[in-house]
Design a protein around this nucleic acid. Structure first.
Lengths: 170, 170
DNA sequence: CCGTTATAGTTACATATGAAACCATTTGCA
DNA sequence: TGCAAATGGTTTCATATGTAACTATAACGG
């Protein structure tokens, strides 16, 4: 059968664009809020990650752990997990790499030998002090696309949408 | 050396909370916009995915492909990728599973035999028609946490933050 | 025509991630 | 005490994802 006749209706190369079947009420992805959120979020996170991933051989999870340990000394892995919204497996793995790379020190907690006592090392601080400003700069770039009023609303809205468990006051 | 004396300063079990080193200007994750965006986005997406993942053995990427094919007949894999903001490898994999499961039909485009011509099958439509309302319901639940004014701002803000490439008008 | 380059899509490999099982230690309590 | 249940962390395994390499077809240029 040579030259199979066009599969079906289409003009053979022009985009179909047949907004098919109103009776099915198809979901319009590009207006769907969760979808748009995920696009924006992933784009932003990726842009930031690109700044340090290769340069420091540092994953996103590792960066989050560094950032938390930069603020709080001697946390346990569990506390790090709480503050990063990562699960304990992810934290365990990030810590394994960070400790191995000499960026975080891990000691055993006196009084409860299950717990770790985590701290940034010199090397850890050095990386933090380079990455944090880059991250802030990216955040400013993002906000620069909004006017002051929009920025304020965005902050409030995110607060309201933040899931309950994410306690900022731990 | 029995009974190693407490590793360092802490009271041995109370959370340290030593807001360490102002001279390092550590980044406050919970106020950092990209971080908050990612928490909200992931939480929402996960909630929706939980509705259908197990029940239909359908991944997020597969669902997105279904949603797009529900609106446009006969797209190529490339066009699906454009409309879902997924890369072509992810689309290829999602399609492999969808076609294998009999949810999407794949034909060769007459006139360009590299292209696929993709369509939902009956089974594909059936799933779409079950999942789409659940997704919409989740979106409503999310929006219900905001008042009308906030909802309007969120829409506008996301539009402005949407990366350029994401053309809604293709 | 024929070789080069571009495009659609798949495959392979390496890495990331999540769920559950697991080990060690501690806590609660009979 | 002493033993069951809880907690901190790690390991294992199965799956997901990204990058680059690859195949097939098509478009372009002489």
């Amino acid at each position: 059968m040579p030259a199979k006749p066009q599969p079906a209706g289409q003009p053979a190369d022009q985009a179909p664009l047949k907004q098919s079947s109103p009776e099915h009420a198809p979901l319009e992805l590009e207006r769907f809020l969760p979808y748009r959120l995920s696009i924006v979020s992933n784009t932003v996170s990726q842009a930031i990650a690109d700044d340090y991933q290769r340069r420091f051989d540092l994953g996103v999870t590792e960066w989050r752990v560094l950032a938390v340990l930069a603020r709080f000394d001697g946390l346990s892995a569990r506390e790090v997990a709480d503050r990063t919204a990562m699960d304990k497996v992810a934290v365990s793995r990030a810590l394994a790499r960070l400790v191995h790379a000499g960026r975080v020190s891990r000691a055993v907690h006196g009084g409860d030998r299950r717990r770790s006592v985590l701290n940034l090392t010199e090397a850890g601080w050095a990386i933090h002090d380079e990455v944090a400003p880059m991250a802030r700069r990216r955040e400013r770039e993002l906000l620069a696309r909004l006017d002051a009023e929009e920025q304020a609303w965005l902050g409030r809205i995110l607060d309201k949408l933040m899931p309950a468990g994410q306690d900022t006051s731990l």
